Lab assay of single mutants.
Amino acid sequence: DYYEVLGLQRYASPEDIKKAYHKVALKWHPDKNPENKEEAERKFKEVAEAYEVLSNDEKRDIYD
Rank of each mutant, 00 (worst) to 15 (best):
D1G: 12
D1M: 00
D1N: 15
D1Y: 11
D1W: 15
D1R: 04
D1C: 15
Y2W: 12
Y2D: 07
Y2T: 04
Y2R: 03
Y2E: 02
Y2A: 13
Y2P: 14
Y3S: 06
Y3D: 03
Y3C: 02
Y3K: 04
Y3R: 02
Y3G: 02
E4V: 05
E4T: 15
E4R: 13
E4D: 10
E4L: 02
E4F: 03
V5N: 03
V5P: 03
V5Q: 03
L6V: 01
L6M: 09
L6F: 03
L6P: 01
L6E: 01
L6G: 01
L6W: 00
G7F: 02
G7Q: 12
G7W: 00
L8G: 04
L8M: 03
Q9N: 13
Q9G: 12
Q9I: 00
Q9F: 03
R10P: 15
R10N: 08
R10A: 13
R10C: 08
Y11I: 07
Y11R: 13
Y11N: 15
Y11D: 15
Y11C: 14
A12E: 03
A12N: 03
A12Y: 00
A12L: 00
A12V: 00
A12T: 04
A12K: 00
A12G: 03
A12I: 00
A12C: 03
S13V: 03
S13Q: 15
S13R: 11
S13P: 09
P14W: 01
P14L: 15
P14A: 14
P14G: 12
P14H: 11
E15C: 06
E15M: 07
E15R: 02
E15Q: 07
E15P: 06
E15T: 06
D16S: 05
D16P: 01
D16Y: 00
D16W: 06
D16V: 02
D16A: 10
D16T: 04
I17Q: 04
I17P: 01
I17E: 01
I17L: 05
K19L: 12
K19M: 13
K19V: 13
K19H: 14
A20P: 00
A20S: 06
A20Q: 07
A20C: 04
A20E: 03
A20W: 00
Y21Q: 02
Y21S: 03
Y21C: 00
Y21M: 03
Y21R: 02
Y21P: 01
H22M: 12
H22A: 12
H22G: 13
K23I: 07
K23E: 15
V24I: 12
V24R: 09
V24W: 12
A25V: 15
L26C: 13
L26G: 12
L26Y: 07
L26H: 12
K27S: 06
K27E: 11
K27V: 08
K27I: 07
K27A: 07
W28L: 14
W28Y: 14
W28K: 04
H29E: 07
H29C: 07
H29W: 04
H29K: 10
P30T: 06
P30N: 05
P30E: 06
P30V: 08
P30K: 05
D31G: 08
D31F: 01
D31K: 06
K32G: 07
K32Y: 08
K32R: 11
K32A: 10
K32N: 09
N33K: 07
N33Y: 06
N33E: 05
P34H: 15
P34G: 11
P34F: 12
P34W: 11
P34L: 10
P34C: 05
P34K: 15
E35S: 11
E35D: 14
E35Q: 09
E35K: 10
E35M: 09
E35F: 06
E35G: 11
E35C: 09
N36F: 10
N36V: 06
N36K: 15
N36R: 10
N36G: 11
K37L: 11
K37G: 09
E38P: 09
E38D: 07
E38M: 09
E38Q: 12
E38G: 10
E39R: 11
E39M: 14
E39F: 01
E39N: 07
A40I: 09
A40G: 05
A40V: 07
E41G: 11
E41V: 11
E41T: 14
E41M: 10
R42V: 15
R42Q: 10
R42H: 08
R42S: 12
K43L: 06
K43H: 11
K43T: 03
K43Y: 07
F44V: 07
F44W: 15
F44M: 13
F44I: 07
F44E: 05
K45E: 13
K45F: 11
K45Q: 15
K45D: 06
E46S: 08
E46K: 12
E46Y: 07
E46C: 06
E46H: 09
E46M: 13
E46F: 05
E46R: 09
E46G: 07
V47S: 05
V47L: 12
V47G: 05
A48H: 14
E49P: 00
E49H: 11
E49F: 02
E49Y: 02
E49T: 10
A50V: 00
A50W: 01
A50G: 00
A50T: 00
A50I: 00
Y51T: 01
Y51E: 01
Y51M: 04
Y51A: 03
E52M: 07
E52Y: 07
E52C: 07
V53K: 03
V53N: 08
V53R: 03
L54I: 06
L54V: 02
L54P: 00
L54K: 00
S55W: 01
S55E: 03
S55T: 10
S55K: 09
S55N: 07
N56K: 12
N56I: 05
N56W: 00
N56F: 02
N56L: 03
N56E: 05
N56Y: 01
D57R: 10
D57T: 12
D57V: 14
D57G: 13
D57A: 12
D57H: 09
D57F: 09
E58P: 06
E58F: 04
E58G: 12
E58D: 12
E58M: 10
K59F: 05
K59P: 03
K59R: 14
K59T: 11
K59G: 08
R60F: 03
R60W: 01
R60M: 01
R60P: 06
R60C: 00
R60G: 02
R60Q: 01
D61N: 14
D61I: 15
D61Y: 13
D61S: 12
D61L: 13
I62M: 11
Y63D: 06
Y63K: 14
Y63P: 05
Y63F: 09
D64H: 11
D64R: 06
D64T: 10
D64G: 04
